[in-house]
Structure formats: structure tokens, C-alpha cells
């Protein structure tokens, strides 16, 4: 029995260690520059984080309202079932993201060295 508990401890320890290493690697960076919207795995829009705006993402039936204000982005309203996206709150740091699984939507903050191309202006 003792031996098995050592196995348990080793297992839990190594999983937690792996999680720690990954957390360090994925840590959020500094203030981001772009709000990148991905739907179904493809980028559909990219907005500068320093310009205030409110965008309605989606169609007539499924929507998420994305608000960019004061250098932070947030989903302020959505008609998905769980509202995980709304509860996530504001994001502003590079690498932070809001996910809406029911609408297959990811809103992610990217850094300043991304492409200098404004999809919303095109």
C-alpha cells in the first residue's frame, strides 16, 4: 500500500509540475495592441485595442457584442447558453482571450508586432 501511495504522489506531482511549466510558458504578456476575432478557426476581424468601439459579432440568431473601451476588450452581451464569454470579463494583455464555445468564437489579444492591417477598415 505504501508503495502505491508513492506512485500516487509521483503522478500528481509530475502533472502539477507540467502544469506549472506550461503556465510559465503561456503567461500573459504586456499590454496588447490588437483584438483578433476568430470564428470556426479562421480570423474574421482585427481591431486596434486603443480605439473604442462596439461590434456585433454573429448573425441574426447567434450574436456576441464585443466592446473595446479604454484599452480593454470584453464581451458585454451574448445570446449563447452559458455566457462564459461575458463572465470572462475584460482582457487587455497579450495572450489573453475570451472563448465562446457555443458560437465557436475566440477573441484574443495580440501584441504590437502583428501585421499592420486593419480588417475593419477594409
Amino acid at each position: 500500500m505504501k508503495k502505491k501511495h508513492r506512485g500516487d504522489l509521483l503522478l500528481a506531482g509530475s502533472i502539477l509540475l507540467l502544469a506549472g511549466v506550461l503556465l510559465f510558458l503561456f503567461r500573459p504578456g504586456g499590454q496588447g495592441a490588437w483584438v483578433v476575432v476568430t470564428a470556426d478557426g479562421a480570423e474574421i476581424a482585427r481591431y486596434p485595442l486603443d480605439e473604442d468601439r462596439t461590434v456585433r459579432l454573429g448573425d441574426d440568431t447567434d450574436y456576441n457584442i464585443l466592446q473595446i473601451a479604454g484599452g480593454a476588450a470584453a464581451v458585454v452581451e451574448a445570446d449563447c447558453g452559458d455566457h462564459t464569454c461575458v463572465r470572462t470579463g475584460e482582457i487587455s494583455r497579450e495572450g489573453e482571450r475570451i472563448v465562446c464555445l457555443p458560437h465557436r468564437l475566440i477573441i484574443q489579444i495580440e501584441g504590437g508586432d502583428g501585421p499592420v492591417f486593419d480588417a475593419s477598415a477594409g
Partner: peptide
């Protein structure tokens, strides 16, 4: 479902919550 591997950032949290 999301058609992306970008969710990898969620892995560490999943490991911790799984443990």
C-alpha cells in the same frame, strides 16, 4: 469544435483542476 489548436493555453488549468 473550434477548429483550432489555440486552446492549448487552457491545458495547464485543466491539469491542475483535473488533479
Amino acid at each position: 469544435v473550434l477548429g483550432t489548436a489555440r486552446l492549448g493555453w487552457y491545458l495547464p488549468w485543466l491539469l491542475v483542476s483535473g488533479v
